[in-house]
Design a protein around this nucleic acid. Structure first.
Lengths: 146, 146
DNA sequence: TTCATTTGTAACTATAATTGTTACTAATAC
DNA sequence: GTATTAGTAACAATTATAGTTACAAATGAA
């Protein structure tokens, strides 16, 4: 099924929570909106919790809520929290070290991958969960950035 | 095995060809440097050929060579030629259309994916095969990074 | 013309990652 | 105490990738 959707689902989850304000959401409720199994949601919530983006509580009337304001959560933080994977993979097998190109290409590709990831991060750090929520709200409860 | 290495291998192949100058390389020779099966190489060469980056010829003393100068081939062209896949995937199942967030989140994520891909492309369009080759040559024709 | 060589491509296998699922434990509120 | 919920382990189903074998089509050389 490869090509992972954890980042997309994480953004969805956090947007739901931003909309719910401080009210904790249960993994069942979130799963209903995302249209998947609650365990899939809890796995991602666990990563978001370890990254300090959400706070969860077990027990009756438990659930999860944002650990900070929606305008303090950038998509870069989300991208790093869930392991979204690299933009491209390097060689499956190490190249031939006896070839002048094979010997050095991995280092070169590694540096390129770093630059590409930085390009991704520059974009993601400019977008917040608040911004995503506002881009979704048809109108009405939309609110200015604080 | 997911997370595809076609872009990495394509850059490797083109760098070999840049170094070989106009001499056509056989898929066997390339496979030896990349350390994989010649068919894997030919599959990628086929994509590069369709994109007009290389020229191939069947038959005895055939092989493939660059279709243009190494400084005219950007990594963006390579990235587009091989299907490197998206930076992140959207929802595996469509979200719940009855939820205000579920209804609109896919569009928002799509726009974010577009921006991210543009971030990737801005980086890749600045790097050419010539630059990769120079960053690899141990010395002699080596040149300072720019 | 004939033959060896090479690409192009189809078909199949093995591997690995993801998502979905069930089942259970631990924590918490009422 | 009891019901509820998160956290997590274990496993199945799906899917993409890379590797492999096999063969047709094209080409150049004898």
């Amino acid at each position: 099924m490869p090509a992972n959707s954890r980042f997309a689902i994480a953004v969805h989850i956090l947007t739901l929570m931003a909309r719910a304000d401080a009210k904790p959401l249960k993994s069942d409720e979130v799963a209903c909106s995302v249209n998947t199994n609650p365990v899939v949601i809890r796995r991602i919530l666990c990563a978001l919790s370890k990254a300090g983006l959400v706070v969860s509580q077990t027990g009756a009337s438990g659930g999860s809520r944002l650990a900070m304001k929606p305008n303090q959560i950038t998509l870069l933080a989300v991208y790093r929290a869930v392991d979204a994977g690299d933009v491209f993979a390097l060689h499956p097998q190490p190249p031939n070290a006896k070839c002048p190109v094979g010997m050095n290409i991995e280092g070169a590709l590694d540096r390129i991958l770093d630059e590409v990831e930085q390009g991704v991060e520059r974009v993601l750090e400019k977008i917040t969960i608040e911004k995503v929520l506002r881009s979704i709200e048809p109108r009405g409860s939309a609110r200015r950035a604080s």
